[in-house]
């Protein structure tokens, strides 16, 4: 049984049919990339997984449990954390308070402190800026905060929506290094990216999304060398 199993997922915005019967799986321990052009439906997919958008049809199983109708605020407790597109840190709150909100559903005080020092070890810049308002951080730092905040819930599956969007190349590399570390730490990763080359280079498997349909899937290395993928998504 896969950790995450999505079957025949249909999602609408009013009359706009945004996801037209997606099916895909993520196995425990994998890094799976979901790539596709702007408007393909990547964000919609992730938002439906974590309950922000309702599915019109289809089924989402996580660790064998049906989570299709579970409301967004109950998802994190089930073990899924979502790093949203555009980071969405709480700009009026301090870095520290943002991280604490990441652990909102956890009650274990001592272990929360441990998680916090683990995050600070992984992102030393967040510790340096812990009392600063999140809105004053640079884009790259905000992305680290969004990832740190998600990790504070100790997820078994982390879904990330375009973590490299709008970042300078140095930050992009740093973010992808961190994703690798997170994955090696035992967290399963579902990664949405427009930066297909980077995403495929760290993923085990990948799905290619086009206007609400999966048009290709397979081993990431294989897709990286596929002619059609190179033409359409890798700009070669």
């Amino acid at each position: 049984m896969a950790m995450l199993e999505v079957t025949d997922l249909h999602v609408y915005y009013g009359v706009i049919h945004a996801l037209k019967g997606l099916s895909f799986q993520v196995e425990k321990g994998e890094v799976v990339a979901l790539i596709g052009a702007n408007g393909a439906g990547k964000t919609t997919t992730l938002q439906t997984l974590t309950g922000i958008l309702p599915a019109k049809r289809g089924k989402i199983l996580f660790e064998g449990q049906d989570i299709t109708k579970v409301p967004a605020h109950k998802i994190v407790e089930m073990g899924i954390a979502h790093v949203p597109e555009g980071r969405r840190v709480f700009s009026q709150l301090s870095v520290y308070d943002n991280l604490r909100l990441g652990a909102f559903t956890r009650k274990d005080k001592v272990e929360i402190e441990e998680s916090l020092s683990m995050i600070y070890r992984r992102f030393p810049r967040l510790e340096e800026r812990k009392n600063q308002k999140a809105g004053t951080l640079s884009g790259g730092e905000q992305q680290m905060l969004a990832m740190g905040r998600a990790l504070m819930s100790r997820p078994r599956l982390i879904v990330m929506d375009e973590p490299s969007m709008g970042l300078s190349p140095i930050y992009v590399n740093e973010i992808f290094d961190i994703i690798k570390v997170v994955s090696e730490g035992g967290t399963t990763v579902l990664l949405v990216e427009q930066n297909a080359k980077k995403a495929l280079s760290i993923a085990n498997r990948a799905y290619v999304l086009e206007t609400g349909n999966i048009i290709m899937e397979g081993d990431a290395q294989q897709l990286l060398h596929d002619e059609k993928v190179q033409k359409a998504y890798l700009g070669e």
Binding site: I52, A72, P84, R88, F104, S153
Partner: peptide, 14 residues
């Protein structure tokens, strides 16, 4: 404060 700033992001925190 989280809900006041960003409802969806707040939900993602639980």
């Amino acid at each position: 404060l989280a809900v006041s700033e960003d409802r969806d992001a707040a939900q993602l925190m639980g």
